[in-house]
Design a protein around this nucleic acid. Sequence first.
DNA 1: AACACGGGGGC
DNA 2: GCCCCAGTGTT
Length: 364
Amino acid sequence: MSASPDWLFFRSALLAWYRPERRPMPWKAHPDPYCIWLSEIILQQTRVEQGLPYYERFVEAYPTVGDLAAAEDAAVMKLWEGLGYYSRARNLLKAARYVVAQYGGEFPATYEGLLTLPGVGPYTAAAIASFAFGAQVAVLDGNVFRILARFANDATPADTGPGRKHFGALASAALGDAAAPLYNQAIMDFGALVCTPRKPACPSCPLRTHCRGYALATWPELPGKTKKMARRTRYFHYLVITDRAGNTIVQQRLEKDIWQELFQFPLIETAQAGGQVTDLVHHPDWPGWLPAGELRLEKSSPPYQQQLTHQTIEAVFHTFTWEQMPKKISGYALIKNKMFIKFAFPRVITRFLADKRLLLDLFS
DNA sequence: AACACGGGGGC
DNA sequence: GCCCCAGTGTT
């Protein structure tokens, strides 16, 4: 049985490294719970460089939790467009309204209280509690799992219940009596800049002398994992139907599936790739109100692909003209070209629209 | 416990 | 291609 890792060395060296290397973040300047919370939700499973512009736009549009609580759902979804994991946006709004309704606009100041907010789990509650309220709790995220697993040469999978608990104990031991707000920032910056998932900067690492994963050369296999995910491919046929006046039919995705609350064109999902457009008419997904005989196919796009975590989406866009389009279609919206800016679409659709716009510009 | 949920970047 | 990222909610 080997002695436990030298956690005193760990936190001392980490904090010594952090002082000169710290990354400036807009929300580090003032420990405002609203800004901390907003930034933490945005950064869930998201790189800092990707999330930063969204953070800036949200703070600008909604400077306080009251402003956010009063916002329209669609406006928040639009501001979140392109960032992914859209349940975060829905829960963001829910939580803002909850904070206003239940707590008079003041965020709960404890880990347990924060945990009651939709979209706030163990990581985010610990982050807000320490950053905004100075609570002595250690955060547990992907960086922390990786760093601790390597430093202690511990292959326990972190993606299980017991694994989380195990690393929770290590994280508390590592934190010790260090100042939690500073320490938590330090360990996450360290994971982003030094102890990176691949090609970590071991030669210049200040923890190298006591790192068991480095000494035993086991670090490439750490942290341990159990998860394996199967991917499936889904084939989407989008019907881009436009009338002579330039109205296009769109609908909101409300079913329990990917991209909830985002907008799209009428969709037919097929089990296989390819197939003739004329076959789509006989597909069960074909909208009953849509008279195939009155549509004129202009063109079918090449397949647009989008990778999701567990799915590959292959989307073809079939552009139609429908001269006698009704003024209203129940369950759908008819929107003009310039109104597309108001609706949030999944990436695969905004990419198609960008290409389409380019073509229009070329020919106009 | 296992799975679903986006999108981008690194190699 | 595959992996991972300042994880959470549902089943």
